[in-house]
């Protein structure tokens, strides 16, 4: 047996054909980016003007106006309440949806598709769009905001809980079925304990997200701190806008801290 010559031992990561394909892929991506930028109707002078505008806006915002801190404080409380109440209700409503959209617990094909349909429709509509819809139905105010947040949360909670149910250990379920326990008791003793950790983790996470989402609900008239923000922007009350933005940052950071603490405490 002869040693392979140096030429035979030559190695390259890609064949010439692969190399051309990769190069062609790169060209396609570059073209797509160029085309999207070209079709955008960007008014470039405004872009070049941006730093000046930022400086101008900043000067108008400073110093923040704290005189109506009382109204802002109560709007913050309202925001917090919208998020908490909506999360609380959504958590309970999402449980039966999770149950019917999990492969291993759903009673039949029809309920499975019904559950999945509810989850997908809830998730594919943004909270603000839900809010617009419910403001049209219930009129402006907190109620529309709560229901909007709830509807958007259903899909999130239901999907993650449903996945948790699908991932449970089947064996305790089998064991309890063998004792002659009814379906409801098997759920209570073999399924519920296994999904409880996910239940708390997902609920806390969603509360955290909802707190952020409820700060913008006011932009479409669905209550919360956003109403004051919108009003201040409309009246060009930039010092008040600054205060509201600061308040939102404080609220979100506090919410984050509470969520982290709860997570450590409960799970």
């Amino acid at each position: 047996m002869t040693q392979p010559s140096v030429a035979e031992r030559a190695w390259s990561r890609y064949t010439p054909q692969q190399r051309w394909k990769r190069f062609a892929g790169l060209i396609v991506v570059a073209l797509a980016v160029t085309w999207s930028v070209a079709t955008l109707d960007v008014i470039w002078p405004w872009v070049w003007d941006a730093p000046v505008q930022i400086g101008d806006l900043f000067r108008r915002m400073v110093p923040p106006e704290f005189s109506n801190w009382r109204a802002i404080f109560w709007a913050l409380v309202e925001t917090l309440n919208i998020a908490t109440l909506a999360t609380f209700v959504a958590v309970f409503v999402s449980l039966p949806i999770a149950y019917i959209s999990a492969q291993n617990t759903t009673p039949n094909r029809f309920t499975l598709w019904l559950g999945r349909f509810i989850l997908v429709s809830s998730r594919s509509v943004n909270t603000l769009i839900w809010a617009l819809l419910f403001v049209a139905i219930f009129g402006p105010g907190v109620l529309a905001g709560i229901i909007a947040i709830m509807f958007r949360s259903l899909g999130f909670l239901g999907k993650l809980m449903g996945e948790a149910i699908e991932e449970i250990d089947r064996r305790p379920v089998e064991a309890l079925e063998a004792t002659g326990a009814s379906r409801a008791k098997v759920i209570l003793y073999a399924i519920v304990p296994q999904v409880i950790p996910t239940f708390f983790a997902v609920s806390i996470l969603r509360w955290d997200i909802n707190l952020r989402e409820s700060t913008v609900l006011g932009l479409v008239g669905a209550g919360g701190i956003g109403v004051i923000l919108q009003g201040a922007i409309d009246t060009l009350a930039w010092p008040t806008v600054a205060t509201v933005l600061l308040a939102i940052i404080v609220l979100v950071i506090a919410g984050e801290a509470v969520a982290a603490w709860l997570r450590k405490k409960v799970i």
Binding site: P172, A175, Y189, P193, I196
Partner: peptide
């Protein structure tokens, strides 16, 4: 009554709760 190779207990419940599972019916 049935006894399993993998025990098939509910891990997150206490021993008493697991034992009482036998009375669920």
């Amino acid at each position: 009554g049935m006894i399993f190779q993998g025990f098939n207990l509910v891990d997150r419940l206490t021993v008493m709760e697991n034992v009482q599972c036998g009375r669920l019916g």
